[in-house]
């Protein structure tokens, strides 16, 4: 039995502790926003937040999440209350096929939590996910836009 917090809700699951967190979230808890791309932490499609850190969940045993706080794209925000990253992704019309985008958005959320206004070089160094539609141009714009939205919201609070 493994227990952790998923998008703010305490959850327990009875699976082999070696099962990658990705599959527990997708198939035990039915949240499909976190994607399978490669299974070897090489593409970043499965990126989610564990205690605020961006983690590639396809290689993280669920047992390693015991007692920790896991956030997926579904928990990041909602259409009524989007996270600044999601708001920026909408404003910049980033997705094409969209499959890799949750991973990019989660990696960006972690980056902005660390570095609220990242430079282009910091973005290059920290966001290393793969996107085959090649939406990189808009992803970069959206990261800067998300930083702006974040700072505006912070100022408003």
């Amino acid at each position: 039995m493994v227990a952790f917090t998923l998008n703010g809700e305490p959850r327990t699951v009875d699976v082999d502790g070696g099962t990658p967190l990705l599959w527990v979230i997708r198939d035990e808890f039915g949240l499909k926003g976190t994607k399978f791309g490669c299974g070897l932490a090489a593409c970043g499609a499965c990126t989610l937040l564990v205690d605020g850190e961006a983690v590639r969940s396809c290689v993280l045993p669920v047992s390693a999440a015991e007692g920790l706080d896991v956030t997926t794209v579904e928990g990041l925000g909602s259409p009524d209350d989007p996270h600044p990253v999601q708001q920026a992704w909408i404003e910049e019309v980033v997705p094409q096929c969209g499959y890799c985008q949750p991973g990019f958005m989660m990696a960006t959320a972690a980056l902005l939590a660390d570095v609220p206004e990242p430079t282009d070089d910091e973005i290059d160094a920290r966001i290393t996910n793969v996107c085959r539609c090649a939406t990189h141009h808009r992803i970069r714009r959206a990261i800067h836009r998300a930083a702006e939205i974040g700072s505006t919201r912070e100022g408003a609070e």
Binding site: K32, G98, Q101
Partner: peptide, 19 residues
């Protein structure tokens, strides 16, 4: 016109073959 599938793709809706 903004993409009609933006919301599904930004909020993680289960729309893909994998899902």
């Amino acid at each position: 016109v903004p993409r009609v599938d933006l919301e599904e793709k930004v909020f993680g809706a289960p729309i893909f073959g994998m899902d």
